[in-house]
Nucleic acid binder design. Structure first.
Lengths: 139, 139
DNA sequence: ATATGTGCAAACTGTTTGCAGCCGC
DNA sequence: GCGGCTGCAAACAGTTTGCACATAT
């Protein structure tokens, strides 16, 4: 997926968050790389093109994106926070061997348990772990 | 739920992990308090009765329990790891207001997506967030 | 007797905060 | 011009590591 800088600036305007060169680049990266990167991965990758970039800014920007619902946080691993520009309902599978995270469709609305009938649910996450096909075949 | 120290030592033997007074007390606490405590909560609570207790030991013990499948890690929040002595399949709901974590039954096996048909799935977590009934009524 | 748990201090990692300067509107 | 973003350094929190000693089998 490729989105122009203008389109991204439009998105920012629509979500009422201020635009900037850095934010455009970070959101662009997040939308182009659907591999659920960590802050560190985003930083390391972009600092080559934006030498003055700081990790603080990456944190700030991502938090702004999450607040504006342009991205969501993935806490499938307890020691690293990952980000996903796809905010539609879907599950995440992490392979214990290669570490890759796969998206998978899941009918999350379908299994609303009776126990939560009177709860206000605002976020639903489904995390699976195990070994992916590619790693299963490569041994 | 109340489990005797002897029963806990039996559990350790069965799982091939060494028993000790500290471990018995930690697992006992985890089984009696199904509120998914953090390491800090366990430590603060037990150090009163076991003055020499260190956080390192709480970490060590919990990791041993997780390896032995006596407990599972809950990563519903990105900044704190919680532990649950109930390793059967069930979902977790965290209230954004009171912070409480509720268990709820969910037929996790029931929504195995085709996309993961050839994956080896070893762990399934379902995390919901929102506002619980009690907080909805108290405003 | 030997392997393993315990607990102290220090190191480490990911994240947040305070603040001066710059940039977008 | 003003509010908000940027980025440096420092602070911070949760967790891990190294090691000497104690304890379980």
């Amino acid at each position: 997926m490729n989105v122009s800088a203008e389109a991204l600036m439009d998105i920012f305007k629509k979500k009422n968050i201020r635009s900037s060169y850095t934010r455009v680049r970070i959101l662009e990266y997040l939308m182009a790389n659907r591999n659920h990167p960590t802050v560190d991965e985003i930083y390391k990758r972009l600092v080559g093109e934006i030498p003055t970039l700081s990790k603080t800014t990456v944190y700030n920007s991502l938090n702004a994106f999450v607040d504006a619902e342009l991205a969501r946080v993935i806490t499938i691993e307890d020691n690293e926070t990952r980000y996903d520009a796809d905010i539609s309902d879907h599950g995440h599978f992490k392979c214990d061997i290669c570490g890759r995270i796969y998206d998978f469709p899941v009918d999350i609305g379908g299994f609303e348990p009776k126990a939560l009938a009177k709860f206000k649910i605002s976020q639903r996450d489904v995390y699976f772990k195990g070994i992916c096909t590619s790693c299963l075949n490569n041994k």
